[in-house]
Structures are given as C-alpha cells and as structure tokens.
C-alpha cells in the first residue's frame, strides 16, 4: 500500500488533485465497503458520488481524506490543503460562530489577526454576517451548515470534500445552500468531491456524477454534466435537467435492481 503514485503515473495525470486507483477497503470485521474504486478529480472539477445509504460513500471520503486507511490500491490527494465538510455541522458548542469559523485556521497556526480577517471574509461569503457572536444552539440547521462551510473555506482548500452536508436540511434551505455552494465553487476554484444520495443535487452541482453500486461500493457509471458555471437556480426546472436526472437515476436503478 503506497500513499503516492509512481512518478510516471502521477505525471500522466498532471492536473489531478485527488486520485483513486483500484482502491478497496475492508473493515476489520470483514465488511467490504469499497471495491476497486478508480476516479480522479482535477482543479475546477466538481465530482459528485451518488449512491444509496450504506454503499460506502462516507468510507470513500474518509479514505480520501486520510481519516481511514484503505486496504488495497492507491490513493493520492493533497492532504496539506484539504477541506472537509461533515454530514453534521460538527460545530463546537462552546464556541461562537466566529470562533468556530476560526477553528481550522487556529489549529493550523494561522496568526490571530489574520485568521480573524479570513473568518470575517468566509462568514461574509456564506451570508452569516451579523451572527458572529451566536452559539451553535442558537442557529438553525441551515445556519449551522453555513458555519461549517465557512470553517473549511477559511483555509482556502485546494481539495474540498463534502459528505452529504445538506442531507438533514429542508428542501428550501437545501436548494439555497446548493446555489451558494456553486457560487463559492465558481469563486474559489477548488477540486470538489461531493457525496449525496440525491440525484437532482448531484446533477445540479457537478461537472461529473459518479454512480456507486450497493456494498461493496464500486463506480458503475460516470456522467459528464455539460452546463457552464455559474449555473442559474432555474436550470433545475429545465427539460435537459430532468432528462439528465433521469439517466442517472436509471443507472442507479439498474445497479440496485
């Protein structure tokens, strides 16, 4: 098991900021979570993985971020500059919004004045200005998720991973946060790896949608989504959007029939 590629392989795929090559992962109890997963994400790409719950999506992100080690294959990613948004907002309840947003920067030793300023910008970017002094328990689900996004944005990650971040939100907050995430993506140009079980969410956000099979997770289909960024929120109502969602759903249905 090696963390890095042989030089010629790395060279052949220069722009990739995250790459999986035949990555398999088996838990100590024998649960096979991932099987020979291969894909890569380049700067400016937003790749979303869709699959039913329990198929190994979170495991894939944990492997990609280094939280879990894989059993086989090769996984390369830029872990020095990595953003990770969890399924729950994982805010520290004893810190205010401001101090939560500063956390990653603080833990990585960014001087106080600078991280203040960066946090201020990130809070502005996610539309939370005016809420800096609030504690997490005073926030709605959507505001918590915005805070969590801002916390990762502060470090200007080159690879940004999201594990079903909007799964717990109502439809309205969810679409609004999708719109904002796209705006931020357009602005920051990171390499995005997003996990969801919602097909429209995947199609709306991504440059590419990968479908995952039931456990052990494998990539079973790969769709390119052609629309330019910035995407307007109303492309969700267009016939092409519905058609694309249909294709993705169809391939998931076949895999899980």
């Amino acid at each position: 098991m090696t963390e890095h590629f042989e030089p010629e392989i790395a060279h052949s795929n220069n722009a990739a900021r995250l790459e999986f090559r035949n990555v398999s992962m088996t838990f100590p109890d024998g649960t096979e979570a991932l099987k020979e997963v291969s894909f890569s994400v380049a700067a400016g790409e937003f790749v979303t993985i869709v699959g039913p719950s329990g198929c190994g999506k979170s495991t894939l992100l944990r492997v990609a971020s280094g939280l879990t080690t894989h059993s086989n294959g090769e996984c390369m990613s830029d872990r020095k500059s990595l953003g990770y948004v969890f399924q729950d907002a994982t805010l520290l309840p004893w810190r205010t919004v401001q101090r939560n947003v500063e956390l990653n920067a603080e833990l990585q030793g960014v001087p106080e004045a600078e991280r203040r300023e960066r946090a201020r910008q990130a809070i502005d970017l996610v539309g939370l200005t005016g809420n800096e002094k609030k504690y997490p328990k005073q926030l709605s689900g959507g505001m918590k998720m915005r805070t969590s996004l801002a916390r990762s944005l502060v470090m200007k990650p080159s690879v940004f991973m999201f594990d079903e971040p909007f799964g717990a939100l109502d439809e309205i907050s969810r679409e609004r946060l999708q719109d904002e995430l796209l705006r931020i993506f357009d602005h920051e140009g990171f390499a995005g790896l997003f996990i969801t079980h919602s097909v429209p969410e995947a199609v709306f956000l991504s440059t590419r949608v990968l479908c995952m099979s039931a456990r052990p997770g494998r990539i079973i289909a790969d769709f390119s989504i052609p629309w330019e960024y910035p995407r307007q929120h109303d492309i969700r109502y267009s016939p092409e959007f519905a058609e694309m969602c249909g294709k993705v759903s169809e391939s998931l249905r076949e895999a899980h029939a």
Partner: peptide, 9 residues
Amino acid sequence: GHQDLFTLN
C-alpha cells in the same frame, strides 16, 4: 465527528 475534525488538522 469532533475528533475527526481535529485529526484532519
């Protein structure tokens, strides 16, 4: 989740 957050840093 908080533990993971700190581990990533």
